[in-house]
């Protein structure tokens, strides 16, 4: 059922939620989190639908925050939806000066005690944790691929990284990372280098490169392909290449040195699938943290003029000070 409220406030919305829940027979409230979706009128439909789709795995109260024009008088319109799916959803349309104080509407509507996740399906703030809405969340979910400038968005996220940040560009990599890890389980040769091919400006490819460089302590080249998305990850070993090649966005070829190539399904996952994976854990993603730290360090090293042959590392192509101190480096050479 839907309830529309115009020119309202947070306590009236909260009362409408309780009324609506009673009206559908007080279904069990097994809700585990509040998901705040920060969006605009044009994208709210898709975003709210994706958020509703995850509510059967993660029953949630979904608060859609739509900021309209900042001009004119301040006001709030709301729509409460309850009864389809296992969660509840509220669309909050903010206008006038209120658009700058969205947290004042959201705060009273959070579920008691349970975690808060803020998701920006489109353009995200440069520093999500410093955003007033981001500040009330345990988990801040951005999507670098959806922003106006993909590479800039990722860099901003990397520089401002705070525990609890994650990006859907990282979530998209999980099946790739799982297969690459499985490939190295089956290869007893050290990785000496590698390359990645992807569409121009693909943020997932940038993250993949940072992850591989960080974990393996080797340089990974980034090449441009026609896509879609990530198309090729190749790790060089003395025995030959370990590779995962996906030219068409649906199925890939899994290549191990000395063995027959095998097809493997590797489709591009839908938004609800990505969201569901991200919400499965709400603590800090340590591996993402290490990856974006590596990314930020590599970028600032690139921006700085190279110190004149101060450190003669064997991998002088791009100085990565923290890659050398990673324990993975020693592991890799010993393996």
């Amino acid at each position: 059922m839907k309830t529309d409220l115009t020119d309202t406030n947070a306590s009236e919305v909260a009362a409408a939620l309780v009324r609506a829940r009673r009206a559908v027979g007080s279904p069990a409230m097994g809700m585990v989190l509040t998901l705040v979706v920060v969006t605009d009128d044009a994208h709210s439909y898709d975003a709210m639908r994706a958020a509703a789709a995850i509510s059967s795995e993660h029953p949630a109260r979904v608060l859609g925050v739509i900021r309209r024009s900042g001009r004119g008088s301040a006001g709030l319109d709301a729509q409460v939806r309850i009864g389809n799916g296992s969660g509840e959803a509220v669309l909050l349309r903010l206008r006038g000066e209120l658009t700058h104080h969205a947290e004042s509407v959201v705060l009273p509507l959070l579920l008691p005690d349970s975690p808060v996740v803020v998701w920006w399906p489109g353009q995200a703030p440069d520093d999500p944790a410093a955003d007033p809405l981001g500040a009330i969340a345990q988990r801040r979910l951005t999507d670098a691929a959806a922003g106006r400038s993909k590479s800039r968005a990722l860099l901003a996220a990397a520089r401002s990284y705070t525990a609890g940040d994650t990006d859907l560009a990282w979530t998209r990599l999980t099946p790739w990372r799982a297969l690459l890890a499985a490939a190295l389980d089956q290869t007893d040769a050290p990785v000496t280098g590698g390359s990645i091919s992807a569409e121009r400006g693909n943020p997932s490819a940038t993250l993949m490169r940072a992850w591989l460089e960080d974990r393996l302590g080797v340089d990974i080249a980034l090449k441009t392909s026609t896509g879609p998305g990530l198309t090729d990850v190749r790790l060089t070993t003395p025995r030959g290449d370990v590779a995962l090649v996906r030219p068409d966005g649906t199925s890939a070829t899994f290549i191990l040195p000395g063995e027959a190539d095998r097809p493997v399904a590797l489709h591009r996952r839908s938004l609800p699938e990505l969201l569901a994976e991200d919400l499965r854990r709400l603590d800090e993603d340590d591996i993402y943290a290490a990856t974006v730290r590596h990314l930020a360090a590599a970028e600032s090293a690139k921006a700085r003029p190279r110190p004149a042959t101060k450190k003669a590392t064997p991998k002088a192509a791009s100085p990565k000070p923290q890659a050398a101190k990673e324990p993975s480096t020693s592991k890799e050479t010993s393996a």
Partner: peptide, 23 residues
């Protein structure tokens, strides 16, 4: 290379599912 010295694996990396070995 055993599971333990695979540099791409980390106990902290809880997104990575356990894929069964070749079988």
């Amino acid at each position: 290379m055993s599971l333990h010295d695979n540099p791409l694996r980390d106990p902290q990396d809880r997104r990575l599912p356990r894929i069964a070995g070749p079988s």
